[in-house]
């Protein structure tokens, strides 16, 4: 069913206000097709009725989670957020290395929170490995990936991916850091795997969260969208506390922390932004 512009705006605003993820106009057809799936599943025949269900019907919160799953699944891949990675590589990382280098603290700590099957953490590992002989010579690099789901953690530790996961990976990195066994099987190099540790963590678990200390870069893409505002604020406050004073916190490509945390400052760069203490 065709999603009218007016209805698109309705869904877009509702999802944004509740979850902090923005649907660009260019994603209208994508949203339309995912809505169609959910409507078929729930037996609802009009967008208006489905909207009513999300907004306050019985099981609305559950249904919203399912819709979010539909619109964010399969989004994970290597080199996913290019503007973010470019900014990090060309500006944020060199600045950080300069500051830390001056005080003689040659250690870099990175956290991929909600790491899923490890693509984000490993992307960072590859980018940093490329700087091993130059900017990061003699630096200690620690990358941590955490997730609540043991199945995806096992996949991350295994480090075997399909063509869909590497679809955005530049040729240079694909050749250098993957062994391609078949059209659908890409095995990640042990050099990259060595750099990352994956552990189980529930972001709600305060007793564990306070031990995730002193990170320079924290990534948390498409995870907070599932939390209600109060939990979101609590989790983001943990990220804030665990971030180094000169570090950066990144969310997903169309996410927003507006109204969640007033302490962070938003730093804009071409194609995106990051949060800083």
């Amino acid at each position: 069913m065709k999603l009218a512009d007016k209805d698109f705006e309705l869904f877009r605003d509702y999802i944004y206000n509740l979850c902090g993820i923005y649907f660009h106009a260019s994603k209208k057809y994508f949203l339309e097709s995912r809505l169609a799936r959910r409507m078929e599943e729930t037996g609802i025949t009009s967008h208006a009725d489905y909207y009513k269900l999300l907004k306050g019907g019985a099981g609305g919160a559950q249904e919203l989670k399912r819709l979010l799953d539909e619109v964010t699944t399969n989004e994970t891949c290597f080199f996913r957020n290019v503007p973010q990675l470019t900014a990090l590589e060309n500006k944020l990382l060199p600045e950080l290395v300069e500051v830390k280098g001056k005080i003689g603290f040659r250690k870099l700590r990175i956290w991929s929170a909600g790491s899923s099957s490890g693509e984000e953490a490993y992307t960072m590992a590859m980018i940093l490995l490329e700087k091993r002989q130059t900017l990061l010579k003699d630096w200690i690099i620690e990358i941590v990936g955490t997730d609540i789901n043991e199945t995806v953690l096992a996949m991350a530790r295994e480090g075997v991916y399909n063509s869909y996961s590497v679809r955005n990976t530049p040729e240079f990195f694909r050749k250098k850091y993957f062994k391609q066994e078949s059209t659908e099987k890409f095995i990640l190099s042990p050099d990259v795997k060595k750099l990352v540790t994956f552990t189980h963590l529930n972001l709600y678990d305060d007793t564990k969260m306070i031990f995730m200390k002193s990170f320079d870069f924290i990534f948390c893409a498409n995870v907070l969208i599932y939390f209600d505002t109060a939990s979101k604020s609590k989790v983001v406050q943990h990220f804030y506390n665990n971030l180094q004073p000169y570090g950066y916190f990144f969310v997903g490509q169309s996410e927003s922390l507006h109204g969640v945390n007033d302490s962070f400052k938003t730093i804009h760069f071409p194609g995106g932004f990051a949060y800083k203490k």
Binding site: A87, N90, K91, K265, T266, I267, H268, F269, P270, G271, G272, F273, K276
Partner: peptide, 22 residues
């Protein structure tokens, strides 16, 4: 001007602009 420079109306990315509104 600042917003356009970080949102694809940036002269085709000829310069690298970064800012913090605050």
């Amino acid at each position: 001007d600042l917003f356009c420079s970080v949102r694809q109306l940036d002269y085709g990315g000829r310069e690298w602009v970064s800012f913090n509104l605050a």
